[in-house]
């Protein structure tokens, strides 16, 4: 089964975090990313970790689910860690054998860079887990709409995103089905060298493309018959209204950034 992707998958429960205005969440996520980049001490990371933990509790997200979102990144994480560990210059040697020399600075950088990556993913995962993709694209559309004046297709972009998200599970199921069907005809997707493996994907990719085009045609017709005619004159089912909670959330984020800056100055 191919449904082990948590990034971009909404986790539908009711929580204060879920109820926040998606525009606010989007901006706060960007602020959070900035905050992560501002951190230079282990205390800062502890602060960030505490924050992520608190938010995920508040959002009623199972920790397991959050951590599972990291799994696709494990190779990149490992690589980041090792590259930084081996190739960062430093003075205090901790370990040295053969050509390998690990310094205190390198270890520190390796840990910090990896943590930064982890928190970036966790932060954005919390956004996508607590915000329905439609709300997210609504938020994007509104935040980007000032750019419409310079003919930036904000509505179209948001609609494309919604549709893409809607069809990801459908196409994943379909991939699984076609793969099995071709395996039943003796196809082999696993062995062979790179070229023969790429070639063996054709029986999977062609039907998948054909089906995606067919679906796109059907969907376009269904949307038209439901009076879709672009963004003009469209109202919204989800109205975005800023509430006290949103202000509170902004306050919390400001506090976090403040604390990080402060400890950066004090403890560095």
């Amino acid at each position: 089964m191919l449904n082990n992707i948590t990034m971009g998958q909404y986790y539908p429960v009711d929580s204060p975090v879920h109820r926040l205005d998606p525009r606010v969440k989007l901006i706060l996520t960007i602020a959070f990313i900035v905050a992560v980049f501002l951190v230079h001490t282990i205390w800062g990371y502890l602060l960030i970790a505490g924050f992520v933990y608190a938010v995920s509790r508040l959002a009623r997200l199972p920790l397991k689910m959050l951590i599972r979102g990291l799994r696709p990144l494990r190779m990149i994480l490992l690589l980041t860690f090792l590259l930084n560990l081996f190739f960062t210059a430093g003075d205090t040697v901790l370990l040295s054998f053969w050509v390998i020399r690990i310094t205190r600075e390198a270890l520190r950088q390796a840990v910090f860079y990896s943590l930064r990556l982890v928190f970036l993913v966790l932060g954005t995962s919390i956004l996508t887990l607590t915000t329905s993709p439609v709300a997210l694209s609504d938020a994007l559309e509104i935040l980007l709409s000032p750019l419409k004046k310079i003919h930036f297709p904000a509505h179209e972009l948001a609609m494309m995103m919604t549709i893409a998200l809607r069809f990801i599970p459908t196409l994943l199921d379909e991939t699984d089905k076609i793969m099995k069907a071709q395996m039943a005809r003796g196809a082999d997707f696993e062995s062979g060298n790179l070229i023969s493996r790429a070639k063996s994907m054709i029986p999977l990719l062609v039907p998948l493309f054909v089906s995606a085009f067919r679906r796109a045609g059907d969907l376009a017709m269904a949307m038209e018959s439901r009076c879709y005619h672009g963004g003009e004159g469209r109202t919204r089912f989800r109205v975005l209204k800023l509430t006290r909670q949103d202000a509170l959330a902004c306050g919390c984020m400001a506090l976090l950034i403040g604390l990080i800056v402060l400890e950066g100055i004090l403890l560095r």
């Binding site: 329905s132 993709p133 439609v134 998200l165 005619h229 109202t235 919204r236 089912f237």
Partner: peptide, 16 residues
């Protein structure tokens, strides 16, 4: 079905 949540999909025509 256009939207990723049932009630939002039902609203799609009304939005249009």
């Amino acid at each position: 079905i256009v939207a990723t949540i049932v009630k939002e999909d039902v609203a799609f025509g009304l939005e249009n």
